[in-house]
């Protein structure tokens, strides 16, 4: 978690305007507030989590990214962050499009379904993978649209979304993803972090 926060923080300019979509209990918001910028908002669907954030004095709105991102004007944030949430939406494509409208730049992190540990579980055990990063069983997972680093990379090029930076994370090892190492990073990383722009 800490590594992911550090990478995100490094992608963000000092004192920029940030929106964290699906901000949960506000851990990332708090981290960025202490390290990067005070100008940060959150959007979260769970009442309980929204109340936790507000209790910490964080500016968070209870709402659903799929319907409530519309209320923010175009390019009203320097960065919009979607940390490990894309897979939980009914319509991830719509959400990505909304994020790209609201944010000048968008940071998306995805738990990589192409990670070899995940692949091995399906290949050898024949069951849906359950890992540290994907702790749910198939019947109670909030994740509706799992994808791999390669899937997201390809999605961006098909949709003409510019990838400014793509970073792979394995445990605490950080590396850049590019066209030539894509297949390897897709196998060897548990998390992908993308900085994208329309």
């Amino acid at each position: 978690m800490k590594e992911e926060f550090n990478i995100i923080s490094n992608l963000i300019g000092e004192n920029s305007r940030v929106l964290d979509v699906g901000c949960g209990n506000g851990d990332l918001m708090k981290f960025l507030q202490e390290n990067k910028t005070k100008d940060i908002r959150g959007l979260e669907i769970s009442k309980e989590k929204v109340q936790n954030c507000l209790s910490k004095g964080l500016t968070v709105i209870e709402g659903n990214a799929e319907s409530d991102l519309k209320q923010f004007p175009k390019s009203s944030f320097d960065y919009v962050i979607l940390s490990q949430t894309l897979q939980a939406f009914l319509n991830p494509e719509l959400v990505i499009n909304e994020l790209l409208k609201v944010g000048k730049k968008v940071i998306v992190t995805i738990p990589n379904f192409g990670y070899w540990r995940v692949r091995l579980q399906l290949l050898f055990k024949g069951t849906m993978p359950v890992t540290e990063n994907l702790p749910h069983e198939w019947y109670n997972t909030p994740n509706l649209h799992m994808c791999t680093i390669k899937d997201f990379y390809n999605f961006c090029s098909t949709k003409n979304i510019k990838i400014y930076k793509s970073i792979a994370l394995k445990k605490s090892r950080i590396s850049e993803i590019n066209k030539s190492n894509l297949n390897y990073k897709n196998l060897d990383s548990h998390l992908g972090i993308f900085l994208i722009e329309n």
Partner: peptide
Amino acid sequence: IVIALNSIGADVGFVEIE
């Protein structure tokens, strides 16, 4: 009210209490 505030980028938090 929240929507009106968001549309001008105001600093607004919102929760609906159960």
